[in-house]
Nucleic acid binder design. Structure first.
Length: 431
RNA sequence: GCGGAUGUAGCUCAGUUGGUUAGAGCGCCGGGUUGUGGUUCCGGAGGCCGUGGGUUCAAUUCCCAUCAUUCGCCCCA
């Protein structure tokens, strides 16, 4: 029995083709977030289990994390997400960091789950967080960045929709209007999160189930209808429209509208899965391709996390964008072009001139051009095929004639245009 | 953790109502062509038909198990 060449379940090998795509995607991510003044950080892949127990969703920590006990009997987890890590880092230097603090990272994260479309065991995730801003300016900036990211890749408004919701608004409603306790609230939120996946009837049933049976069911039916299924908030026996949390939501939507982001809707069912979110949350959906039926990415405000480390709390808004779902989105919308090689020129050596060809290549490298020289000694046809397979944009033919005249034949593979050029002209053309 | 689908050449897939040497396209290697590919022609290599067991004179084909891949549920990027 020989060894398997397959990567471990749910992980990926990145051959040069795949790696080019990944580098291209990450470069755009970095470009956009850095244009908003965000600075890159990184943290360890391994974290103590306690970091996640109180704050991430319970299921992710208990059932969906890679974890082990180290030689000092410490419970260790391979990070399933980055938010607790960055919160820990900010708390650790709470006093000396300047606010607003804008941070981003592209960590690989690990979740032990059965893979399916858009869900692997190892994935990369762009994390963008702004610390120290209490007001909705931070929420707006966060969503604006999300929108800019999509546009940077050529996505148009008709391809995606941004849905915003408010945990705080839901809490006020559930607590004050419905009279729910903490535990019930959590259960209700989980059902709310699934709203679009189940029928209105099932939704109502499951909400009631989450609340428990002791309550007056007819009363809740009406509330569920008016809040979730067909919002008519003016009719509610409670002044939702004047709640600060509701006003925030409206202001965010209006401000985004003003700056040209008008594909934002208020969706009461947008709550997100993590427990640490405290206020406004958002999710982005692919609205053109039904196969991408989950949220592409999302985030929101989590004001309580930094304070968990025993320092003054720091209000925070952030979002995470997974590489797998995002790449699915790009593929479905034909926004994923094939990337050229990092190698600019492939030297096709004709005849017995390898040493001279090497010299030419070295001269070009010194001008900042990436040059690979064919070493196979095969006939030119084979050398060309090899270069094309690697997606190298230029071929440089070097034979005796070229060496003697110091003029080389440069061919652009995409167009088949061929020119006889000096070294100087080659570097200008390729650059 | 639960349910479905699929495992035949490097890739995408045919096929065998159970019967000698297992098929295609693409790709790969070599040649026609000792200086030009993506669009020519000729030739070639490459398969324990996922793995283990059962039924049978005979299994790649039928049955069971198992592993892998994949889709959905749960949860989430």
């Amino acid at each position: 029995m020989s060894l398997s060449t397959q990567p471990y379940k749910g992980t990926r090998d990145f051959y040069p083709d795949d790696m080019r795509t990944r580098k291209w995607m990450f470069a755009k991510w970095r470009k956009v977030v850095e244009s908003f003044g965000y600075e890159e950080y990184d943290g360890p892949i391994l974290e103590p289990l306690e970091l996640y127990t109180a704050k991430t969703s319970e299921e992710i920590v208990n059932d969906q994390s890679f974890n082990f006990t180290d030689r000092g009997d410490r419970r260790v987890v391979m990070r399933p997400e980055m938010t607790p890590t960055v919160s820990r880092m900010v708390a650790g230097k709470r006093q000396e960091l300047g606010y607003p603090l804008r941070l981003y990272s592209i960590p690989n994260c690990f979740r032990y789950e059965r893979q399916q479309r858009g869900r692997l065991r190892e994935f990369w995730q762009l994390n963008v967080d702004i610390f120290g801003v209490e007001g909705i300016e931070a929420d707006i900036e966060s969503i604006q960045i999300a929108d800019s990211l999509l546009k940077e890749f050529g996505a148009s408004k008709d391809m995606y929709q941004i849905r915003i919701g408010s945990r705080k608004l839901l809490h006020e409603l559930l607590h004050q209007l419905w009279g729910l306790e903490k535990g019930q609230e959590k259960a209700v939120l989980q059902v709310v999160d699934r709203m679009h996946k189940i029928s209105p009837e099932d939704f109502k049933e499951q909400i009631k189930l989450a609340i428990g049976t002791s309550n007056d069911q007819d009363n809740y039916s009406e509330l569920i209808d008016s809040f979730f299924n067909n919002p008519r908030w003016d009719d509610l026996p409670y002044d939702i429209l004047n709640l600060p949390s509701y006003k925030d939501l409206q202001s965010i939507k209006n401000k985004l509208d003003e700056i040209g982001i008008d594909n934002v809707i208020h969706d009461p069912s947008t709550v997100r899965g993590f427990e640490y979110y405290t206020d406004v949350v958002f999710e982005v959906f692919d609205i053109k391709n039904p196969e991408n039926n989950r949220s592409l990415f999302g985030g929101g405000r989590y004001d309580g996390l930094v304070g968990e480390f025993g320092v003054e709390p720091v209000p925070t808004v952030g979002f995470g964008m997974g590489d797998v779902t995002f790449q699915n989105f790009l593929e479905s919308n034909k926004l994923l072009p094939e990337q050229p090689s990092e190698t600019d020129i492939y030297v096709v050596v004709i005849g017995d001139v390898l040493t001279d060809a090497q010299k030419v290549a070295q001269d070009l490298r010194e001008k900042g051009i990436n040059v690979a020289v064919d070493l196979s000694g095969k006939k030119s046809e084979k050398q060309i095929k090899n270069a094309l397979k690697k997606n190298i944009p230029y071929l440089l033919f070097i034979g005796e004639e070229e060496i003697n005249n110091q003029v080389y034949t440069l061919k652009e593979t995409a167009t088949s245009n061929e020119q006889k050029l000096s070294l100087e002209d080659i570097s200008k053309t390729v650059a």
